[in-house]
Design a protein around this nucleic acid. Structure first.
Length: 274
DNA sequence: CATTTCACCTGGTGGC
DNA sequence: TGCCACCAGGTGAAAT
């Protein structure tokens, strides 16, 4: 569900609301899919730790946990949450009704709860103990021109597929790949390695603009997405191509085309994008 | 390696 | 109303 702007919005909201709070106890549901390690291990690693901060890395929410001051403490850990397609991470009150598909409830010393809800169960919870969690790829918001160009050098795959590859740029998903290619005037099927330097620079600028604007709008709520407080984003109102199949291009009125690329719906304007 | 395809899930929508 | 096909912010394993 959520891409970089949505995860950024959620992580900022969580950081604001639960930074400094202490995890008292953890309940995990019976479905195995959302857990990357045994429930016991995850619950044990989280229980009685303080949340030092919450941040985003790629599409992951990272809770930096302060080490417990016990003799056998293993040092600092991170609780890593990936929301998959339909995951939500919500700050709630224990009095609030627990929605269907709730897979984890983390009770905080402040009396509130963190709830992980995910109907499709593509999301994942894990705990790592590296000092700093680094994502699979390069951060799109800050990547510079030379590094950006280098990522695509020699690649025969379509540029859209390359944008979705988390080992290259992490955080870009289907909405913002389509939207940034539209803004850059580049067709999704163009071979990544054959893009000219000026096109790559247009693409980098377009991608960073569209991600920043989406963060300012609190993300795109297409179906499930809400932030940590349960509020929808509104960047979907500014989409130029995503899910606009057959509708007139907002620039030239040509109907927006939809193709399947690597199993993902891909939307573009056949006239504006070359 | 790089690239492509498909399975993993539930739920909403639209056609008949 | 029901049934069915298709679609959906994502990955990761297996095949090519």
């Amino acid at each position: 569900m959520p891409e970089l702007p949505e995860v950024e919005t959620i992580a900022r909201g969580l950081n604001k609301r639960v930074r400094g709070d202490v995890i008292d106890s953890v309940w995990l549901g019976s479905h195995r899919e959302p857990l990357k390690s045994p429930a016991q291990e995850i619950a044990a690693a989280l229980t009685r730790t303080r949340i030092a901060q919450v941040r985003r890395v790629g599409k992951h929410i990272v809770f930096d946990l302060e080490p417990r001051r016990s003799r056998n403490g293993k040092g600092s850990r991170q609780w890593i949450v990936h929301l998959g397609m339909t995951g939500r991470m919500l700050v709630a009150s224990p009095k609030d009704e627990v929605p269907k598909h709730t897979h984890a409830i983390v009770s905080l010393a402040s009396g509130r709860e963190l709830r992980f809800v995910d109907p499709r169960r593509f999301g994942r919870l894990s705990v790592v103990s590296q000092p700093s969690f680094v994502g699979p790829g390069t951060e799109p918001l800050t990547v510079e021109a030379d590094d950006f160009a280098k990522l695509f050098r020699g690649r025969k795959t379509p540029i859209k597929a390359a944008l979705l590859n988390q080992r290259l740029l992490h955080g870009v998903g289907n909405i913002y790949a389509d939207e940034s290619l539209f803004r850059a005037g580049i067709r999704p099927l163009r071979q990544a390695g054959r893009l000219k330097r000026v096109e790559l620079e247009r693409l980098r600028a377009a991608l960073q603009e569209v991600l920043q604007e989406a963060i300012r709008s609190g993300g795109s709520s297409v179906s499930d997405y809400v932030d940590a407080e349960g509020r929808e984003g509104f960047f979907q109102l500014q989409h130029n191509v995503y899910l606009r199949t057959g509708l007139p291009c907002l620039v030239c009125k040509t109907p927006i085309k939809r193709i399947a690329l690597g199993g993902r719906g891909t939307h573009f304007c056949p006239k504006c994008q070359k």
